[in-house]
Computed example of a mutant assay.
Amino acid sequence: MLTAVLAVLILVPAGILFIRVWQQNEDDRSDTKLEQQGVEYLAGLSPLISALAEAQSAAIQGSAEAPASLTAAVTRMGAIDQRLGDTLSTRERWTSLRDTIGRLPAVKGEKTQIFQAHVEVSALALALARAAAENSTLSRDPDTDLAHLQQALAVDLMDTVIQVSRMGDLSLLVAGISGSATEKAQAQAVLLPQFGAAVNQVNADVAGLTDNLQAAVDDTTSVTLSGSLVSTVDAFRRGVESFVRGASPATTLTGSGQPQPAAMATAQSQLQTSLASLSGVLVREMGGLLDARSDRLDTRRLEAIVVAAALVLLVLAVILLATVGRRRRAADSADDEALSALPDAPDPFARSSLEPPYGAEVGSNRRERSGAVR
């Protein structure tokens, strides 16, 4: 009875602790898997953002067809959302974005109207990126390095690409304003504030990107993050600076300068290349950190199973030993009782009660036999 009570007192608290540890581990594993899916989703969105920027510039310059890069990016992103959209709750946003992209070639009219249509599409794409980061819990990751890396990828980097492209196209629109002085003034009153806002946003995004990447490097367990970012970040920033110079913001803001389309085209090509490299580094580093976390959780899970199994075996061993000891004591007690129930063994040195005492006369029959012998 005492053994059973002790077993219960050991197993019940240990079982409750095991369940809590196991449940926490499973929750962490689920969160990690969800974040891995979020990284995969953002990896597909990065080339789509770049393709949307390219399509916007092509449309402003008079191209009626969407570039091949946009078609390929939409197809690839559709396949990703087909697998992950329900889990990340992005299906509705992606469907809206895909349909809006599909209607872009049908947008006709003034260049400003075409530009605004692309602005709406890029806004939907950026909102989708933020939703993927939020719904996958990447934006709430407890590790500092991962939190800053996802901010750099899902917000700063993608927004920089969109705003740089928007700034360049606005500079071309401002430079292309025609008509009477009144019409030019009216157009400039609409476009110049947008251009100035885009320039300011580019500077803010690049600063935010730099700060987040530096914060991630300062507090990371990755041994490759710092080295991987140095060249890619520098190349990206040089591309942004070249594009800004090509747009000539100092003169375009006054309406008197002319942008440099050739310089912007070169800078945009460089920017897209560096964007692919930088986003690839961020995706790879985030994936590596999440894989390492998943491995740690798997190890912790195995350790919990081993400890629980060892505890159960220990309790079973104690119960078994107690049972064997109890049975052995019961057997010994039964043997003692059996022995005590047996009659006492005769004393071989004790005189029989039928034998006459020494020196007593024998009976008549004895005498007769003795005489017969004689």
Rank of each mutant, 00 (worst) to 15 (best):
D291I: 00
A292K: 02
A292Q: 02
A292T: 01
A292S: 01
R293P: 01
S294Y: 05
S294N: 12
D295Q: 05
D295A: 02
R296Q: 12
R296Y: 03
R296A: 05
L297T: 03
L297D: 02
L297I: 04
L297F: 05
L297S: 01
D298C: 03
D298Y: 07
T299Q: 13
T299I: 15
R300M: 13
R300Y: 09
R300T: 07
R301V: 04
L302E: 09
A304S: 15
A304T: 14
I305T: 14
V306L: 09
V307G: 00
V307S: 06
A308Y: 02
A308L: 06
A308P: 00
A308K: 04
A309S: 14
A310S: 07
L311G: 01
V312Y: 05
L314H: 01
V315T: 09
L316M: 10
L316N: 11
L316H: 07
L320T: 14
L320A: 14
A322D: 14
T323C: 07
V324Q: 08
V324S: 08
V324T: 08
G325R: 08
R327S: 09
R328I: 06
R329W: 05
A330Q: 15
A331Y: 06
D332W: 06
S333R: 14
S333C: 07
S333T: 14
S333Q: 14
D336G: 12
E337M: 08
S340I: 11
S340V: 09
L342P: 00
L342V: 15
L342I: 12
P343E: 07
D344I: 12
A345F: 14
P346S: 08
P346D: 00
D347E: 01
P348S: 03
F349Y: 12
A350T: 02
R351L: 10
R351Q: 04
S352T: 03
S352N: 03
S353C: 05
S353N: 13
L354C: 04
E355S: 12
